[in-house]
Simulated scan of single mutants.
Amino acid sequence: MNRSRRALTLLGLAAASTLVLAGCAGGSAGADGGRLQVVASTNVYGQIAAEIGGDAVDVTSIVSSASQDPHSFEPSARDQLIVSKADLVIENGGGYDAFVAGLIDASGTKAPVITAAELSPAWPADAHDDHADAGHEDHAHVEGFNEHVWYDVDTVRAVSKAIADQLSELDPAHASDFAANAKAFGADLDGLDAALADIESAHGGEQVFMTEPVPGYLVEDAGLVNVTPEAFSEAVEEEQDVAPATLLEALNLIGGGSVRVLITNTQTGGAETQAVIDAADEHGVPTIAFSETLPKGETYVSWMQANIEALSAALA
Rank of each mutant, 00 (worst) to 15 (best):
P215W: 00
A231W: 11
I82K: 12
V236A: 03
T155N: 08
E220W: 04
G94R: 12
A187M: 01
E234C: 03
L251E: 10
L10G: 00
D79F: 07
L262R: 07
Q267W: 00
D152M: 03
Q207C: 02
A245W: 01
V261D: 05
A202C: 01
G186R: 05
A7H: 07
P75L: 10
A16R: 13
Q267I: 00
A245P: 02
G257H: 09
E118Y: 01
G30V: 02
E169S: 11
I52E: 08
F185H: 04
D188S: 14
D221E: 13
A202D: 14
A173N: 04
T264E: 12
A50V: 02
Q37D: 06
S160A: 15
V285S: 09
V89N: 05
D221C: 04
G204D: 13
S258Y: 02
V113R: 12
N181Y: 06
L294M: 09
S4D: 15
R157L: 01
R6W: 14
E200H: 10
A313E: 15
V149S: 03
A77M: 12
Q68H: 02
K85I: 02
A101R: 09
A29I: 02
G204K: 10
T246S: 10
N43M: 08
A197G: 15
Y45D: 12
S76D: 13
A140S: 15
C24F: 10
G256Q: 06
V142H: 07
W150F: 06
Q47T: 12
E272C: 05
M210W: 01
E238P: 01
V301N: 09
I114G: 08
T115P: 06
T211Q: 05
Q305V: 00
F185Y: 12
